[in-house]
Amino acid sequence: MTSLLYLLGGILLVAGAVFLLSGGIGLVRMPDAYNRIQAGTKATTLGTLLTLAGVACLRPDWALKLLLIGLFLLFTNPLSSQVLARAAHRVGVKQAPQTVIDRLEEDLGEKP
């Protein structure tokens, strides 16, 4: 039973690390600030959650606290990236040339 939990924990830790790696690569490869925030948010959320789940398998007595950390992460991570994206847009950070549409800019232009 214990060895099975250890195996599961290891698998979860590796999966989390893989997602975190993909997030890191995304940060480097994406063309502009907004796309980088996207890559950063999603990959780190799932990656960290999987890592926490892996740790919970290795140390079951920490499970409750890890669950709490996961919950806070789930709530604060998207919030912080939303605020970052909004701040970037407000100070006028340029978007990548591939960008097809910007409704927010259009609507801001209409207002006096």
Binding site: Y34, I37, K42, S81, A85, R86
Partner: peptide
């Protein structure tokens, strides 16, 4: 807004 930020390729800006 949080759910949108965490799902396929979308991020709430404003």
């Amino acid at each position: 807004a949080n759910s949108i930020s965490l799902t396929p390729g979308t991020l709430t800006v404003e």
